[in-house]
Amino acid sequence: MDTSLKEAILAIITPDPAKVGGGGCPIFLVQDQKEMEKTSMLLARVLGGMVHDLENDVFIIVRH
C-alpha cells in the first residue's frame, strides 16, 4: 500500500526569507533565481514531487 505523503507541501524554496515562515515544512534559502530553479529541480527529483511557482519568488514542491 502506498503510504507516502500526498497533496502536502514537501519543501519551500525561496531567496527571500521574509516571504515564508511558520512551521511544518522545510524552507531552502537560495541566492538567486537560477539557484532556486536548480535546487527545486533537484529536490523535486528526490521527493518525487512537482515544482509549483507561486509567482512571488517562492517555489513549492508538492507530491500529487
Partner: peptide, 8 residues
C-alpha cells in the same frame, strides 16, 4: 496546472 520549472 501550475508549472514552476522553466525547463519543464
Amino acid at each position: 496546472m501550475n508549472v514552476g520549472l522553466p525547463e519543464t
